[in-house]
Design a protein around this nucleic acid. Structure first.
Length: 580
RNA sequence: GGCCCCGUAGCUCAACGGAUAGAGCGUCCCCCUCCUAAGGGGAAGGUUGCAGGUUCAAGUCCUGCCGGGGUCACCA
């Protein structure tokens, strides 16, 4: 289905024949042989670097290899031209019918066009969001949630077996803080003055938790010491927070497959087992860390700790897994959790972290490397900050939480579709400006609108055509004679559509869903361009006097629409049919 | 100071190790008897922070600097 992969196969076959004829040595490594769209359309439709890659190992000048390759590729009816250019590129020109055939592929496969099997059914776990259950999700979580979800969609589309997972950090001190904060709201629910001391969570969102605690416990917890109520209130409050977080995620269109609890790891022996596993590999020892080089913390004192020899797996220093009081550091359950993922049989792990967690990448990779004997790759994507803007100035206030802007605020102000798309208009490791005014604007400055508008225009064509009595169902469009689609603007659009399967594979291989958003923008741009040329050149309009000609052109428009809908589906954005 | 990310057109950003580094905004010029002008076409604009290295080929990989951000042992 991937035309570029198909032609690459032809190139590899031709190279094989050259080897058989003794023109090339056998056993050449072809992994770097690529077939890709040239940057400059004047270079033809596709280009291969085969001759340059093989020149050295084959001991022949690149141009000589390229000439031989060209001659053999010309036997392929799909290939109309093969010219050696530059330092040894082989530029290929494909028969128009090949490009027109793309329409049949799209109209046959529908939104399955571009689906790939490069994932080969491998099990991949995508862990994302993993916010502490101490309050509503805020802006900082939105981007990670969207990237994780879109990446999951993308990988599934490319043939991976994907599990979306949320790791609930409910085992640390911050849930105790939550409990104490909720307890004050519980007192408040009884008409007492809450004491929201420094360090507690002040947000109004805990008021309902206080009410619920009152409903459940009546006044039985009042005037009791913390040791009486802390555990119960903690569990109760964090469960309510998780409920709220699930609803927040749902509002953004994100659904998790698995929620894993940090707390649930304690007391089950899982942490101990994971550390024991490392110990058996000789990676756990009692020792003292050197103080950080250069800038030594004020209160530094040498201390004997239980350490994980993460330096054996690429980390810079070894990392403590136990505190001096013998309890686990936060890292220990993280190790156990990742070990758990390895044991569940995932072939590949992906973590989506905030950029402020960049310091944990090496140690986490070291742990997974150690525990999986380097068999399970862990890719960690760091998500940079989102800066909110409104009316030309930074937007910080939230009516709901007071101190921070929540996910809900963003979704309610911008809508889930717009929010999701914009969050994917930057690579994950670059900071992103989210301007409420701009993202809601209906103009070409706004990429969401721009892409949606292209789709709306296509639907408009289909409506008009139907009104004119032209049959435009996919089966009819599929059967139409597409050979008239020869104008450069039409061919350009066909080629762009042909790139979609390749784009999917590249994006999936690199775990980079933003590429889909950029592609859709380019595809929409080509559509708008063709559309506008129809203003001057009537023969480029989709709807013509001749029904058969119309159907061919509408097949092109419809195919663009299919790809836009497919791409938006991967991003988790609902296509807009009409934009009145 | 160590480590991580970023540095590309005036601005915001793309570019699986491939050819003459691309879009959008902004600036300038132009296009509505026409399926949605909520759009489109064109011009100008670059030593890809600097210096080396690897490679047939480097914005991309390696080393060292410069600048910005993040992070740095019993917090998660």
């Amino acid at each position: 289905m991937n035309l570029f992969a198909d032609i690459r196969s032809a190139v590899v076959d031709a190279l094989g024949r050259m080897t058989a004829e003794g023109l090339l040595p056998s056993g050449l490594n072809l992994s770097n042989v690529a077939v890709e769209p040239p940057r400059d359309a004047a270079h033809g439709d596709m280009a291969t670097n085969a001759a340059m890659v093989l020149a050295k190992p084959a001991g022949k000048p690149p141009r000589e290899i390229a000439e031989g390759l060209a001659a053999r590729l010309m036997d392929d009816p799909r290939i109309e031209g093969a010219d050696v250019a530059g330092p040894g590129f082989l530029n290929l020109r494909l028969a128009p019918a090949v490009w027109q055939g793309v329409l049949r592929q799209v109209l046959e496969a529908g939104t399955g066009y571009g689906r790939s099997d490069i994932g080969a059914g491998q099990k991949v776990n995508v862990e994302f969001v993993s916010a502490n259950p101490t309050g509503p999700m805020h802006v900082g979580h939105v981007r990670g949630a969207v990237v994780g979800d879109a990446l999951s969609n993308l990988l599934a589309f490319a043939g991976w077996n994907v599990t979306r997972e949320y790791y609930i950090n409910d085992g640390g001190a911050q849930v105790d803080v939550l409990a104490r904060s909720a307890y004050e709201r519980y007192r408040e629910a009884h008409g007492l003055e809450p004491e929201i001391r420094e360090g507690l969570y002040p947000g109004d969102y805990l008021i309902p938790v206080g009410e619920a605690l009152k409903a459940k416990y009546g006044d039985s917890l009042l005037d009791k010491g913390e040791q009486v109520w802390l555990a119960d209130v903690r569990d109760f409050a964090s469960a309510m927070m998780m409920q709220m977080i699930r609803e927040d995620l749902a509002a953004l269109g994100v659904r998790m497959d698995v929620y894993s609890s940090e707390k649930a790891l304690y007391g089950t022996g899982e942490i101990e087992a994971a550390i024991e596993e490392l110990r058996e590999k000789g990676l756990i020892y009692e020792g003292t860390l050197e103080p950080p080089k250069g800038k030594e913390p004020e209160d530094w004192e040498p201390r004997v700790q239980t350490l994980f020899r993460s330096t054996a797996h690429g980390d810079d220093v070894d990392r403590p897994v136990k505190k001096s009081d013998g309890s686990w550091t936060y890292f220990a359950p993280d190790i156990a959790y990742h070990y758990n993922k390895v044991k569940r049989g995932f072939d590949q792990l992906i973590d989506i972290f905030g950029a402020d967690h960049g310091g944990y990448v090496k140690r986490m990779k070291a742990a997974v490397s150690a525990l999986s004997n380097s068999t399970v790759p862990l890719d960690i994507k760091l998500i940079q900050l989102v800066k909110l803007w409104k009316n030309g100035e930074p937007f910080k206030m939230s009516k709901r939480a007071g101190t921070f802007v929540t996910l809900r605020d963003v979704v309610e102000m911008a809508g889930a579709d717009v929010t999701r798309f914009i969050m994917l208009t930057r690579k994950n490791d670059v900071a992103l400006d989210f301007d409420f005014d701009k993202v809601l604007e209906q103009s070409k400055d706004n990429p969401v609108f721009y892409v949606q508008y292209a789709n709306a225009r296509i639907n408009s064509v289909l409506r008009k055509a139907r009104d004119a009595g032209i049959v435009v169902d996919d089966a009819t469009l599929l059967a139409a004679d597409h050979s008239g689609l020869a104008h450069p603007a039409e061919q350009a659009l066909l080629k762009k559509i042909a790139e979609w399967p390749r784009l999917v594979e590249i994006a999936a291989r690199n775990n980079e869903p933003h590429r889909v958003a950029f592609y859709l923008y380019e595809l929409a741009s080509d559509l708008h361009g063709l559309w506008n040329r129809g203003n001057d050149e009537l023969q480029l309009r989709f709807i013509q006097e001749d029904v058969a000609v119309s159907q061919a052109k509408i097949a092109l428009a419809r195919s663009v629409g299919v790809v836009i809908c497919t791409g938006l589906g991967i991003l988790g954005v609902t296509p807009v049919e009409e934009m009145r």
